[in-house]
Amino acid sequence: MEKNPVIGSSNATNSTAFGYRFSIFNKSFKFALRSLLTSCSKEEFFKAFSSFNNTEKDFLHRLFLQVITSLHEGIEEDFEAICLKTKVGETLDAVEEIVEEQDLDLLFSNRSNIADVAENLSTAKKNEIQHLMHMVQLGEEHNQRLRKQLELLKQGSQALSDASHAVEKIRSINLNYVTNSRDEMHGV
């Protein structure tokens, strides 16, 4: 793993070298800090003090830059001290080593892929089982409706048969009555 000297106190004997991730972290912090502290341009600064003459504006701007520089250095030193105290560099180095080991370990990526595939397959099978159970339930409900309709048809058929027999009986009685009535009228 490549080590880049990044962080250290003002004297060279206490400087510590950390890896690439910490280098990026440290550079990003310093860039953000510089951007925040220098966000006011000279023109904007002069506009803020428009009632002052140019000599006073220049003096105030130089004083402002000195304060900003001092503040910048103080914040950087505090940042570096906090990073050393909390071992941010060591932690990021450990993360970097783990990532490198995982990149080199071909089975690590395969294991996660296999686990993902197994999980996806399991989820798909569970969804398929739920879908099939739902289809079976719908089929059973459909069969029950068909049975009820068949039962109603049988009952309707029986009723029609009974009605048909009743109509035949009435017809027969009617024919007998009509025949008997004719015979009585003709004096038979």
Rank of each mutant, 00 (worst) to 15 (best):
D58Q: 02
G19A: 01
K85F: 13
T91Q: 11
K85G: 07
I129N: 11
S50P: 01
F25A: 08
I98K: 12
A115K: 12
S41L: 00
Q130W: 05
F31E: 14
R171M: 07
F64G: 00
V99P: 04
N54C: 02
D103Q: 14
S23M: 03
I82R: 11
A163R: 10
R62E: 14
A118V: 10
S181E: 06
D116L: 07
L37S: 00
N127S: 08
V6T: 08
S23L: 15
E184L: 06
K85T: 13
N120M: 10
D103H: 10
R145T: 12
V99Q: 12
R111V: 12
S109C: 05
S9N: 13
E96C: 10
F108Y: 01
S41P: 04
I7L: 14
G187N: 05
A81Y: 11
I98L: 15
E140G: 01
F49Q: 03
G156S: 15
S23C: 08
F64C: 02
P5F: 12
L107I: 04
A115M: 14
E128D: 14
D58P: 01
F22E: 09
S51R: 06
F46T: 00
G156P: 00
S164Q: 06
Q144L: 15
C40R: 10
T16M: 15
M1T: 06
L138N: 14
G139F: 05
G139W: 06
Q158G: 05
L132E: 08
S23V: 09
G89F: 02
V67C: 08
I75D: 00
R145I: 09
L146P: 03
L65K: 01
L152G: 07
F29D: 00
I82Y: 03
